[in-house]
Nucleic acid binder design. Structure first.
Lengths: 131, 131
DNA sequence: ATTGGTGCAAATGCTTTGCATAAAG
DNA sequence: CTTTATGCAAAGCATTTGCACCAAT
C-alpha cells in the first residue's frame, strides 16, 4: 500500500477524531488540509485501510457507515435517534469469545459488546420538544 | 396499527424464516403468497414493525439491512464476506448491561454481543478458490 | 518507467416518498 | 365515513466505479 499524502492525512485525522465520523464528516475535516481532495478518495482509502485492519468500519446505527481509528478491542453504543456512536467503558479482562457456546459453523474472528440507547444530545432535544 | 393482509403475511414469513433476511429476500418470499405486493410495502411494514418493537432491524454486515422476527435478547455473528447473519448461542444468564462501567452519558436501552467471522458457505468457497 | 492512486462525473443500488386508489375499522 | 395502507413510479442519498491524469517508488 503506497503512502500518499491523502492516505496519510485521512488516517491522521481519523485517529485524531474521537467521534467515529462518517465518510463525509471526515471528508469535511480533511478538506481543510487538502482542499482539492475528492470524496471518492476518502471512501477508497477508508475501505483499503479497514481491509488492512488499520482502522475499523462500524456498520450499525443509521444509513451511513462510521469509522474508528482505534482498533483496540472495545465496545460501542449507538444512538437510536441520530446514529451517533460513542465508546463504552466495560469491565476489564473481558473476552467475549469465551461466552460463545455454539457459533453455528461460523469461524469467529472478532467479538464485542454493542449497546443502543439515546445520546446526551438527543436526550436534551426530547426534553425541549415536550415543552 | 391496522391489521392488513400484507402486514400479517410479512410478519408471519419473517417469523418463520430463521435466516435474518434482507427486505428484498423477504419480498421474494412474500410475493409467492401475495403476487401483487410492492417492495415499498415490505419496506414500510418492516420499518413500522421494528419501530413498534415487534421485530428487530439488524444494521451490521453489508450494505443491506436485515430483519429478525425473534426479539428475545440474543447474539449474532455476521459474515465479513457475504453479510449473512446467524444467531449465536452464548452462556446463560448473560446481562451485558452489567458490564458497563461508563456509558458516556448515553441512556442505554439494549445491549448484546456481536461477533464477526466467516460463515460456513464462505469457508467452503475459500477452499475452492485455492485450487 | 511502472504501478498504484487521485479527481471528477456518472452510475449503482438500497431505501424512501408522492400520489392516486383501495381496504380497514 | 374516515383514516391508514398499498402499489407504482420517481426521487433520494450514500457509496462505488470508469477513465484520464498524476504521483510514488
Amino acid at each position: 500500500m503506497r503512502i500518499t499524502n491523502q492516505r496519510e492525512i485521512i488516517l491522521e485525522e481519523l485517529k485524531r477524531l474521537k467521534t467515529h465520523p462518517t465518510a463525509d464528516e471526515l471528508y469535511e475535516v480533511v478538506k481543510k488540509r487538502l482542499p482539492r481532495i475528492s470524496i471518492a478518495t476518502v471512501y477508497r482509502n477508508l475501505e483499503r485501510l479497514s481491509e488492512a485492519g488499520i482502522i475499523h468500519k462500524l456498520e450499525y446505527g443509521g444509513r451511513q457507515k462510521r469509522f474508528d481509528g482505534d482498533v483496540r478491542p472495545h465496545s460501542h453504543v449507538f444512538c437510536i435517534r441520530c446514529g451517533r456512536i460513542s465508546d463504552v467503558d466495560t469491565v476489564d479482562g473481558l473476552d467475549v469469545r469465551e461466552m460463545v457456546l455454539d457459533s453455528k459453523g461460523f469461524q469467529i474472528k472478532e467479538g464485542s459488546l454493542q449497546f443502543q440507547g439515546v445520546c446526551p444530545v438527543c436526550q436534551k432535544e426530547k426534553q425541549l420538544n415536550v415543552n
